[in-house]
Simulated scan of single mutants.
Amino acid sequence: MAITLYDLCGRDERLRFSPYCWRVRMALAHKGLGYETIAWRFQEKDALAFADYDKVPVLTDGDTVVTDSFEIMRYLDRAYPEAPVLGEGVSFQRVQFFKYFVERSVTPALFRIVAMDLLAAIHPDDRAYFRETREARFGASLETVHNPEQGRQQLKQALAPVRTQLQESLFLDGEAPSGADYLLFGSMMWAYTVSTEQLVEESDPVSAWFARMLEVHDGVAEKAITIRDL
C-alpha cells in the first residue's frame, strides 16, 4: 500500500514547516517507511474534504485515512509494529503527557520567538488568513505576540526538565530517538525551518540534541529546505 502525507508548505512549495507534520515525518523515518507528500496550504480546505478534516497532517495508507499527528503516530505503531514509536500501556501514557507539555509550554514559547518570521514564510495568499486566525487565538496582534527575547526566556524555563534529561542520555528516549524526541523535535524544527533566530544557547544540551536529531534517519531533517535556502 502506498502511504501519502498531506504536508503544509509555505511560500515555496519545498518549505515544509508544520510541527505536527514533522512529528509524522520523523515517525515514518523511524519505521523506515516510504511515502509521498502532497503540498497543502492553509486555505485549501477542499483538498481534505475526503478526510472530513480541515488541517494537516492527513495520512492515507491505501484505503485508510488518518488525521491528527498523534493519532497518525498511533496508527503507524499498530499497522507497522516493528520499531514502535509511542508504545502501549504505561509507556503510551507517559508520552501522551509529554505531548501535552510540548503543545502547552514549548510551542507557545517558540511562537513568540518566530511569529513574524513565520508570517513571512507563509504563502502570500495565506497571510491574511493566518494573521486573522492566530490573532484571534492569542487575543493580540502578531506584532505584539512576537517578542524573541521573551520567548527565549520562556522556552529556557519550559525546557528545564528536558535539559536535565539530556545531560544523562543522548536522546529523551535513551540511546536512540523515539516518540518523545519526535514530539519535541517537531516543534523545534518548525521554528528552525521558518526563522534564523537562535532558539537556545549553543552550550545548552538541547542544542546538541537538536543537532543530533537533524542527523538521524539518514539526515531526513538536515536535508530539508529551510528559510536559509530560499
Rank of each mutant, 00 (worst) to 15 (best):
M1S: 15
M1E: 13
M1A: 12
A2K: 15
T4H: 07
E13H: 13
E13A: 15
L15V: 06
F17C: 13
S18G: 01
R23N: 02
V24P: 10
L28A: 08
H30D: 11
T37K: 08
W40A: 01
R41N: 01
R41E: 04
F42C: 02
D46A: 09
L48E: 01
A51V: 03
D52T: 14
Y53R: 13
D54P: 02
D54V: 11
L59T: 04
T60C: 11
D61M: 04
D63E: 15
V65M: 10
V65C: 14
D68E: 15
S69H: 13
E71D: 15
E71T: 10
E71P: 04
I72L: 10
I72T: 04
I72Y: 03
M73W: 04
R74M: 03
E82K: 14
E82A: 14
V85L: 00
G87H: 03
E88M: 02
G89C: 06
G89A: 06
S91R: 11
F97K: 14
R104Y: 09
S105P: 03
V106A: 09
T107V: 07
P108T: 05
A109M: 07
R112G: 02
R112W: 08
V114S: 08
V114L: 14
H123L: 11
D126T: 05
A128Y: 08
F130W: 14
R131K: 15
T133V: 14
E135R: 11
F138S: 08
E143C: 03
T144H: 10
V145W: 15
H146S: 13
P148D: 01
P148S: 02
E149W: 12
Q153F: 15
K156V: 04
Q157C: 07
L159W: 03
P161F: 09
P161L: 07
Q167W: 10
E168V: 02
L170G: 10
F171L: 14
F171S: 12
F171K: 05
L172C: 06
L172V: 04
L172I: 07
D173F: 09
D173R: 06
S178F: 01
A180H: 01
Y182L: 01
Y182C: 00
F185R: 00
S187P: 01
M188V: 01
M188D: 00
M189E: 08
W190A: 00
A191G: 05
Y192R: 08
Y192Q: 06
T196W: 11
E197V: 09
L199P: 00
E202M: 08
S207D: 15
F210P: 00
A211N: 08
M213P: 03
L214I: 03
E215S: 10
D218W: 01
G219I: 11
V220Q: 01
A221I: 03
A224K: 08
T226L: 14
I227S: 03
I227C: 00
D229P: 06
L230I: 14
